[in-house]
Simulated assay, not measured.
Amino acid sequence: MTALRMRNAKFGLGDVVRHRIYPFRGIVFDVDPVFDNTEDWWLAIPEDVRPRKDQPFYHLLAENAESEYVAYVSEQNLVPDTSGEALRHAGIADVFEQDSSGAYRVRDRHPN
């Protein structure tokens, strides 16, 4: 097995991002410093577009025109979403709140 070199993540929790190829966007709710999914998942990606494993991978509350879902995306395939369009994913309110500037921050999870 080859050693993987870890890099600092370009995006953080609450960042709104867009996929650079496919028409979806979402909000980052978790970050893996390197690939941490199944080998079957990785091999299911066509080889000509398969991402490297030695980069951050992001868990997104994602949405496209038709649906809302959770996505797992490599850093190389994400760009900042600067559209300012509201996100509609139903899971956002469970994890994030928006501050007065419109930025998302993780909800405080302290019990009442």
Rank of each mutant, 00 (worst) to 15 (best):
L87S: 01
K10M: 10
V17Q: 00
W41A: 10
R7D: 11
L43R: 12
P111A: 12
V34N: 03
L87D: 01
Y69M: 03
F96P: 01
V95H: 05
N77A: 11
T82A: 08
R7G: 05
D48Q: 13
A86N: 12
V34Y: 10
N64A: 11
D36A: 10
R5Q: 14
D36N: 13
R25Q: 04
F35R: 08
H89N: 15
E47G: 10
A44S: 15
A103M: 05
H89L: 12
H59A: 06
G14T: 08
P80Y: 09
A44C: 11
I92H: 01
D54Q: 12
L13Y: 09
D99Y: 09
A65Y: 06
I92D: 02
V106F: 13
R18N: 09
W41I: 06
P56F: 03
E85P: 05
Q76P: 01
F24C: 03
A103V: 13
L13K: 11
R109K: 08
G84F: 04
N112R: 15
E85G: 04
E47Y: 14
Y104M: 09
P46W: 05
D54F: 08
K53G: 02
T82N: 07
P80R: 15
D94L: 14
A86C: 12
R107Q: 07
V31E: 03
E66M: 15
P23I: 02
A86Y: 09
A103R: 09
D36W: 08
